[in-house]
Nucleic acid binder design. Structure first.
Lengths: 341, 341
DNA sequence: TTGTAAGCGTTATCAA
DNA sequence: TTGATAACGCTTACAA
């Protein structure tokens, strides 16, 4: 049973008294093997505890059973939830998940490119909106790939994300329903499509309510807590105060709440605030943040499923899968304060 | 350059006009190759963009360059930071990191055991305090392995963690220095060594201060937010109130603060609270949580370094590496309220 | 210093 | 339905 060296197909063949070819067939195309033979083989497998040597198999087949997942920052708590979805889906199809992170360092990207080149991964999941392999990427042969959150800039790669416009609409519609008219948008000017779309949702919502965006209260940050705080400062300096802040993500919203708190205001009594993403922290801010939830595990699951489809069909079934984001109502939104009514 | 099929060692050999053996040597033992030959080979490698096929190499060598990381829950935010340390260290030594999670399901564990059996990983990093492979684990041949956080129960496996006793001492000493005498400990009765050690640190600190633990205020929870809340309820029911709560981890501390808040008390004015771990949320609780920081990235780095050492030497350099946990002072601790003085 | 050739454990082709 | 065998790309005795 527990020998010093793992059983090979040859051990199984010897015990089952058949050839190794038959063993291989009994495993992969059992219908091509006589019942009695298959039985013998299965017994021999049970006896030896045989498992196919993945190295040999991959070498022979010319492809591995590993999927490389490259993210700019695997330390991001958002990432780990998606990873769960990715890993579950992969494993249930016989694939393993390899982790890589670039930290936006092109040198790192290059290492992963080499990695792919040496046939170590059959497919690629990309969290970055851009191929992280420098200009080499253009000439490189990439394996089937799928993006997460947004399309990959310089490659015609299908992706799985969330309907950012719809999500943003849910936030803005809530604010408007509560009676807000002057609603600031604190955006992210970096070039992520997701962020642009959230702003589009904001504008669409304002338009639909017949308000129209007031550009004086549409601010561009960079998605960090600090940029949320700064946005508040700017607005106070300019003296163009909204009654509510719709933020491009939770980090920004947290910054806005900190900025408001520092000036002695109460959320949601004095100002309402919404986020986007529903990061784990959103429960613990005070007040707890009303935000839009990204179905992270599900995103991971769909992304991996799409990739596996690509791997078997070769044809991308769809080029874009957008999941439905949900409004999570907590305590950072209320009707506008008296001053606004 | 970007042909349809990756270059093999044979392509390189042909262009360099040497044998494939020489190419292999030029790569792995360059000192055994004439300078001029090495030059030719390097040029040919540059021209072809050759990368060693990892499958073939692993098959030939009988071991892969992958490390399997098995955690009960990769969705845990604590995990992702450690992963950063693990991955960096692994990659800089030519190893890749494979992710697996068991969610405490023995069936899952078994799948990973098969995975290991099929030679897909050269080493194993375990986050669970117990071999997650069921009873099969006993008879199984495991590759070199390293535990994270605590020793692996049923295997003589070296591990990297934090000095929990010292960490707990830092928390209890702070509380005592602030003037607290009646300090509750909210523990975790599950069998994790780390949790037992934290309690030992608590007791040692109380003893050192000449107080001695009052068993009526030493509670056993299960490390969840809910169990922290429950602990508070228990204490109020029993009417044996402490002036401070030292909690076995941050989750518990958050629960305690929630419980206290629900009863209308203010932290730290009425009660002081400490946590352990310094999870990302600890910054966002109100008040921000004073806690003990685990150097997570460093733990990952050390764990992987130890494993790689094992992989090359075969001998565990040390059987236990304990890193120093740091006190992080935020706003959940102050001197006891008047009632206690 | 270099080349020849065996063999790692599979899968797939071909023949029986 | 089964078996013999070539090939996947590499490393490493062993020989030259």
């Amino acid at each position: 049973m527990s020998n010093s060296t793992p059983a090979t197909i040859e051990d199984v063949a010897r015990i089952a008294e058949v050839s190794i070819a038959t063993v291989s067939r009994a495993i992969h195309t059992p219908e091509k093997v006589a019942n009695s033979t298959r039985l013998k083989v299965n017994q021999a497998i049970a006896i030896t505890g045989y498992t196919t040597n993945a190295m040999a198999r991959s070498l022979r087949l010319g492809r591995s059973n590993m999927i490389l997942v490259v993210a700019p920052d695997i330390g991001d708590p958002n990432f780990s939830n998606i990873l769960v979805g990715l890993e579950n889906e992969a494993r249930s199809h016989g694939y393993g998940v390899l982790i890589g992170h670039t930290q936006n360092d092109p040198q790192r990207g290059l290492e992963y490119l080499k990695f792919l080149n040496s046939n170590q991964a059959a497919g690629l999941i990309l969290f970055t909106g851009i191929l992280p392999f420098g200009h080499q990427a253009m000439t490189a042969r990439l394996p089937p790939s799928v993006g997460v959150f947004e399309p990959v800039f310089n490659g015609g790669i299908p992706y799985v994300g969330v309907d950012d416009i719809e999500g943003a609409r849910k936030a803005i519609d809530l604010l408007i329903a509560e009676g807000h008219r002057k609603i600031a948008f604190v955006g992210d000017s970096r070039t992520r499509l997701a962020h642009r779309r959230r702003r589009m949702g904001y504008e669409a919502g304002m338009d639909a309510a017949g308000i129209g965006a007031d550009l004086r209260i549409v601010l561009e940050g960079d998605g960090t807590i600090e940029s949320g705080r700064l946005a508040v400062e700017q607005l106070f300096m300019r003296d163009t105060l909204p009654s509510a802040f719709m933020c491009v993500n939770d980090q920004t919203a947290i910054g806005v709440m900190i900025g408001l708190g520092a000036r002695g205001y109460d959320v949601p009594r004095d100002f309402s605030v919404t986020g986007f993403d529903d990061v784990p922290q959103a429960v613990f801010t005070s007040p707890a943040l009303t935000t839009i939830r990204q179905p992270r595990t599900l995103i991971g699951k769909h992304a991996m499923a799409l990739l596996l489809e690509l791997l078997s069909d070769g044809q991308p079934a769809e080029t874009e899968i957008l999941l439905r984001p949900d409004l999570v109502v907590r305590n950072s939104v209320s009707a506008p304060s008296r001053a606004w009514r």
